[in-house]
Structure formats: C-alpha cells, structure tokens
C-alpha cells in the first residue's frame, strides 16, 4: 500500500484512477441506492451484460466498415440507453414479466457481443478489458465523461428525489397522487444504465453490478432514510474503491476484483452489525 501512495505523486495514471474511483462512487451511490430499495439489481446486471453487444458492434463497425468516429464506449452508451428504454416500456405496469425480459436482455446482449467480437478482424484484447475493468487505464476524456455524469445524476436526484422515493415506495399510490410515473420510470432506467456504463470502465461488465449495489446495500443497513442512505453509499463506495486500488497496486492484483472483494467484506460486516443490533433490541 505504501508503494501506491509513493507512486501516486509520480504517475498521472494513478491520479486518474483515484479521481475515477471517487467520481464513479458518487454516481453509483446515488443510483445504486434507488436500485437497492427498488429491488431491481437485476436491471443493472442486464444492462451491464448487454453492453458487450454495444462494445462489440462499435468495434466491428470501426474495424470492418470504417466508422472511425464510433468508439466502443459510444456503442456501450447507445446500447445501455436503448436497453433501459426497452426495459422501462416492457415492464411498465406489468406489461411483461420483468424477470423474463431481464433474462432475455442479459443473455441476448452477451451473445450478440460475443458474435460481434468474433466477426471483427484481429484480436480484441482491449474489448476483453471491459469484462473486468481497467481503472488504471482511465483517460482524461473518461474522467470528463464521469464528471459530467455525476453532475447529471446529482441534478436529476435533486429535482426528482421526492418522486423517485414515492414511486419506489408504491408506484400505484404515486400515480394516483398525480405523479407521471411512466416518465420517471424512463428517467430512472436511463440514469441506472448510464451509471452502469461508468462502472464498466472501472470494474468491468462482470463486476459492475457489485459496485453499484454493495455500497448502497451496506448503507441501507445503517440508516433508515433514503437520502442518508445515498450519502452513506457514496462514502462507502469511495472508501472501498480507494482502498481496493491501494491494496491491489503493490502486489499487482486486479484492481476491479479487489475493489469488489472489499465491498463484499464491508457489506458482510454491515449485515453482522445490523443483526447484532436487532438481537440487542435496537432499531435495525
């Protein structure tokens, strides 16, 4: 860990990684708290895995058909937003079984991604880095995108917080009280999808769901209000990400996996503490 702090002053890529960890933790803490209280963790999973289709398609169009302006991340964003809109529409008011739709999107997206990668000439080693993330390779442009996303998410949460809370509490009651729930559902799905795209850059497709939900879930065990849960989730996310980065750097462990492992430990510790409080008769 000492090596990490020593090198932090010398290597700009480490500074970028630290800034990225903080920025994605803000987005993940806010969006992740909503995902956790709405019990829609699988939405994040489906979006993150379907992103592979966007990454693969963008690279295929780039390499085989000369669309040089289309980066893999742009493909990921387009697919993530498309999937979010599809999910919002199909699951609105129980039009479709959510679990069935999620399974189709999850597996279909992965399958398409694999096919696109296979059809692209050459070995796509950088695409493979999206599977497990590459926080040490985050560029200045990536940081700008992450900062913009944070501003967007904080702004939307500030304006829509009451409505998101009411819909999460009971969608039917919120609708009957005059909230246009269909619009807010779309906003929620798109925000979650964009947050997942950010997380994929840091911890990868496979682990994005963990960094989105584990800090929020741990925060939910120590507070009984959504706004405090969001704040705590952001704090836990930053702590977990920075610790994971620092711990993994010296021995050369994969940073994304280390971050998630620490997040799991924090969640387990919070669960044990919550159970202990319940046993002692204190409010959970």
């Amino acid at each position: 860990m000492l090596t990490f702090f020593k090198d932090l002053c010398s290597y700009p890529f480490l500074v970028n990684a630290v800034v990225a960890a903080v920025l994605v933790s803000v987005a993940a803490g806010l969006a992740g708290s909503l995902v956790v209280v709405r019990r829609s963790t699988y939405l994040a999973g489906a979006v993150s895995h379907s992103i592979l289709a966007g990454l693969g398609l963008a690279r295929l169009l780039q390499r085989r058909f000369g669309f040089d302006g289309l980066s893999p991340m742009m493909g990921a964003v387009l697919v993530a937003v498309g999937v979010a809109l599809l999910m919002a529409r199909l699951t609105a008011r129980g039009k479709q079984r959510a679990d069935t739709v999620l399974s189709a999107v999850w597996t279909g997206g992965m399958a398409l991604g694999v096919s696109f990668v296979a059809a692209t000439p050459g070995y796509q080693d950088d695409l493979m880095s999206y599977l497990f993330g590459s926080i040490l390779l985050v560029s200045g442009t990536d940081l700008a995108w992450m900062a913009a996303m944070d501003v967007l998410i904080i702004g939307v949460m500030a304006v829509c917080y009451n409505r998101f809370l009411a819909i999460a509490f009971n969608e039917e009651l919120a609708r009957l009280r005059g909230v246009n729930t269909a619009v807010y559902e779309v906003v929620y799905h798109v925000l979650t999808a964009l947050t997942v795209v950010l997380l994929v850059r840091v911890v990868g497709i496979v682990l994005a769901i963990a960094l989105l939900t584990l800090p929020a879930a741990a925060a939910g065990l120590v507070t009984r209000r959504l706004d405090r849960m969001m704040a705590a989730a952001v704090g836990i996310g930053i702590a977990v990400s920075l610790l994971g980065l620092a711990v993994s750097y010296g021995p050369g462990w994969p940073p994304g996996a280390t971050i998630v492992e620490i997040a799991v430990l924090v969640y387990l510790a919070a669960s044990c503490a919550a159970r202990r409080r319940v046993r002692l008769g204190a409010p959970a």
Binding site: A158, F169, N170
Partner: peptide, 28 residues
C-alpha cells in the same frame, strides 16, 4: 402495500408523499 421491511422511509416522508405531485424541485 407490498412493502420491503427495510425500505428507508420515515412516517413523515410517507405522509408527505400525499403531496408529492405538488412539491417543486424535489422539495416539500
């Protein structure tokens, strides 16, 4: 009301939801 026993909402917040459509810029 299908309700998650861990849903983080206070009684006051639950009652305020009756006025959710009247709230402006996310604040009561």
């Amino acid at each position: 009301v299908p309700f998650d026993p861990r849903f983080p909402v206070s009684v006051r917040e639950a009652v305020l939801m009756g006025r959710v459509a009247k709230s402006r810029f996310g604040h009561y």
